[in-house]
Design a protein around this nucleic acid. Structure first.
Lengths: 131, 131
DNA sequence: CATCTGTTATATCATTCATATAACAGCACC
DNA sequence: GGTGCTGTTATATGAATGATATAACAGATG
């Protein structure tokens, strides 16, 4: 898994890290049961502090994307049926759609955008589980 | 326009203010040409500092939701064809859809969610410009 | 001239982000 | 049993951000 951090971004490093791991899971680059590099190893690889990685892992754990085994480290384990996640997702989508409506984007525009991005993600997957 | 700030939220006050004004425009509670309260008046109304309101207005101006007239204050004026806005919107949607895919949500699930929220926004509008 | 507007300049305080050093407990391997 | 790897916790520091406060300025309105 290749991680790329933009240090000049206004987005926090731990947040970028979370997003890229979630993206990895979404595109099946990371699959159920796959181990993540240890906090120290990941920190070395991308040149950041151990605690920043640890913060990202802790959040991923809380949000149900990984489980942490004390001896083996962080392992991809997605909690699919988390209601909190879906509720938060809808809240975020509401903010996004408010902006979209201000820009005169129609439902169809949004549907198309969703499809395009899903196509994109499934392309990376190579095979399987198109929905 | 009724503004409600959650002071215990982790979301910044100026950010909440921006979001609610954008939501107001999306639901036609605020329409093209409508004036926003002056920075001092708005600050008094919701019990926050003038500079926090000013920060929100400045961002709304930069992102093309209002224009600021020195003598009349901030006025709703939406820049519909801003490419930057659409690009940023797609970036945000990508992050959101990555999470959605991890939760096993299908394209149809997302389409339905978009439609529901749009229904909701158009309900508030009362009439006109359904898309 | 008084009063409203946005805007700018400082300053202060709390919180967050990222860093650093250090230590601890659990497990695996030799 | 010691070495080396995990995550985890504690504490500290420096930079940046968020929100506040006081103050002033330029432009427009009455």
């Amino acid at each position: 898994m290749l991680i790329k951090i933009d240090f000049s971004s206004d987005e926090a490093i731990y947040q970028q890290l979370c997003n890229q791991i979630i993206l990895g899971i979404a595109t099946a680059t990371l699959e159920e049961g796959d181990p993540l590099p240890s906090v120290r190893q990941m920190a070395d690889e991308i040149g950041i502090n151990m605690h920043t990685v640890n913060k990202a892992y802790t959040i991923l754990k809380q949000e149900g994307f990984v489980k942490v085994d004390r001896r083996r480290g962080a392992i991809v384990s997605v909690d699919v049926d988390t209601l909190r996640a879906r509720a938060q997702l809808e809240k975020d989508l509401r903010k996004l759609l408010a902006q979209a409506r201000c820009r005169n984007m129609s439902r169809q525009d949004l549907h198309r955008m969703v499809d395009d991005i899903y196509d994109d993600y499934e392309l990376v997957c190579g095979t399987g589980h198109e929905v």
